[in-house]
Design a protein around this nucleic acid. Structure first.
Lengths: 195, 195
DNA sequence: CTTGGATATGAACGATTGTTCAGTTACCAA
DNA sequence: TTGGTAACTGAACAATCGTTCATATCCAAG
């Protein structure tokens, strides 16, 4: 027995990435074996290497895809007229986007240390780019007198940490809807930047 | 050759934990072998089992010790008279305590999924207890009319995420001193709770 | 001076790891 | 109907894993 019935390359590839995403998020990159991923897909371990160069590339692809999607989605987001509008748009976007893909977010934050130096640098650059988007909003708001900030970089890091933190406790079907959470976090962000 | 010269049990034990702390923080629990830890200590792998039941217990001990120290240190902290004073004390304490032990903090947040169910429950309970300390402050401030909060639990999670986030970017000898960072974060916390 | 416990070695255990590859099958184009 | 190739298997590779254990050495106490 070798190949199963039907042509599967366009099915199996995404399924490998999906299985890796779930398993890496649940157990951690180092704790998941290629054989576990293969079993989840319904294939032997050797077949995975038709879809990825090695385990490291599998992790890197997942992280780079996530960061690319993040940047692309934010670029497409309407941002309003004022810096305060843009900050509200960013806050709501960040929560929504991250709540929609908890596994990818978890991996992107937790598995950085399992990347090779080169791959780490690439992901880090994308993260910096995203942080830069928020910093630009804060700088504009500062210059327009809409915000009162003592340190833009620091405020940016604080806001992102606060917003991303939602992923650690939010559970679907819980006490609050995603919108209600976003409303309250936007209030807190507003207060934190003195607006 | 077996035992080296001198009595070492009171030296080796702490050294095993210190090596495990550093290595787990740098590479992750699953990616670190007992032999790596042993090499760092200057001992053979088998000797580690004089100081820990197994690898899992080593991780759990590190995490439980960290959480115990956290709760004990906060209990010893002067908290001022008003709820706002207590909130400031908490904010500054949290940043200071966490910046002093980045490795332990990193492990306590990243390696939860590598704990057995039983051990996870124990650590989770301690974390809840710490979060409860902040919630109590917020509740008191709310009732005294010092704070304006729409949801205490949510504000508590947001504040902790924001404060803990300092560990992800702060570097010793950087642009800002720890005190300067704490000053600015306290400003932001104050704003976020409407005070 | 002997004895016994504390401290450590080093070899060994079976299990599992990421990865490669020759062989096998199913599909599609000619 | 036939060939070629895409998709996959199953076995194999050396390396490493956590853990155990018989053995050896050192120190303190009697």
């Amino acid at each position: 027995m070798a190949r199963k019935t039907g042509s599967h390359s366009e099915i199996t590839g995404p399924r490998v990435r999906a299985a890796a995403l779930t398993l890496f998020a649940r157990h951690g990159f180092a704790a998941v074996s290629m054989r576990q991923i293969a079993r989840e897909v319904g294939v032997q371990a050797g077949a995975l290497y038709l879809y990825t160069k090695d385990k490291q590339s599998l992790l890197f692809d997942l992280m780079r895809t996530h960061m690319d999607e993040l940047l692309a989605a934010w670029a497409d987001e309407p941002k309003g007229d004022t810096a305060l509008d843009a900050l509200e748009a960013f806050s709501r976007f960040h929560i929504r986007f991250h709540l929609e893909r908890p596994d990818a977010v978890f991996i992107a934050y937790m598995e950085l240390r399992n990347l090779t130096d080169e791959n780490f640098a690439a992901i880090e650059a994308l993260r910096r780019q995203y942080e830069g988007e928020l910093e630009a909003i804060l700088r504009a708001g500062q210059e327009a007198g809409e915000l009162d900030l003592s340190d833009i970089r620091l405020s940016s890091m604080a806001i992102i940490a606060m917003l991303t933190g939602v992923n650690t406790w939010y559970r679907e079907g819980g006490r609050l809807s995603r919108e209600a959470v976003a409303d309250r976090y936007w209030d807190m962000v507003k207060g934190a930047v003195g607006a």
